[in-house]
Simulated assay, not measured.
Amino acid sequence: MSRSFTIFIALSAIAFITYVAYGYFNRPRFVGGVVAIHTGTLPGHGVLGVTFGLPPNEMILTSVLEDGPAGDAGIEVGDHLIGIEGERTETGQHFLSVIRDTSPGDVVAIQFQRDGHEKIVDVVLCDALTIRELNLERRLQQGFLVPVSEP
């Protein structure tokens, strides 16, 4: 193998790892509207602080903010969401449609499966700004963001 090809492969690997670390390849969908957060407007409905997988595993959680509403209620990464407020949900869109009818501070019953057992927990939803702040704090702790000091 030539040296330039080896360097190209090494740089490609670094770029891939960087993109994966920052979530560019597998942009999670935040329950609460990641699109709304990226455009600068925050949704007014309640937020769980979790991310879904991609279809066909879209109801399996890929991320749960530890200090977010779902994390505080005991929901974990890998849990399979199966219902909300007693209503079975088959898709992420259906789940989101129910969430969009809530407000911060509402308590919702979330039904999920873990290790083959169904569980139901009550979750106190928060607002999208709180989730954004928790997410930024987590990224700072993980070293993905570096605070800038004033001169």
Score class of each variant (00 low, 15 high):
M1P: 04
S4N: 08
F5T: 10
T6V: 12
I7T: 14
I7H: 10
A10M: 14
S12C: 15
A15M: 09
A15L: 13
F16H: 05
F16L: 11
I17W: 05
I17R: 01
T18A: 10
Y22R: 10
Y24M: 15
Y24N: 13
R27C: 04
F30L: 15
G33Q: 01
G33I: 04
V35S: 08
V35Y: 06
A36H: 12
T39W: 02
P43T: 04
G46A: 09
G46K: 02
G46V: 02
L48G: 02
V50C: 08
T51W: 03
P55C: 02
P56H: 00
N57G: 11
V64S: 02
V64H: 01
E66L: 12
D72L: 09
E76K: 13
V77S: 08
G78V: 02
D79K: 04
T89E: 11
E90L: 07
T91I: 04
T91Y: 03
T91D: 06
H94M: 13
L96F: 06
V98N: 09
I99S: 01
S103H: 11
V107C: 07
A109Q: 06
Q111M: 09
G116T: 06
H117M: 08
E118P: 05
I120R: 03
I120S: 04
I120Y: 01
V121S: 03
V124D: 13
L125F: 02
A128Q: 13
N135F: 15
L136R: 14
E137D: 11
R138Y: 04
R139P: 01
Q142K: 07
F144G: 08
F144H: 13
V146D: 13
S149C: 04
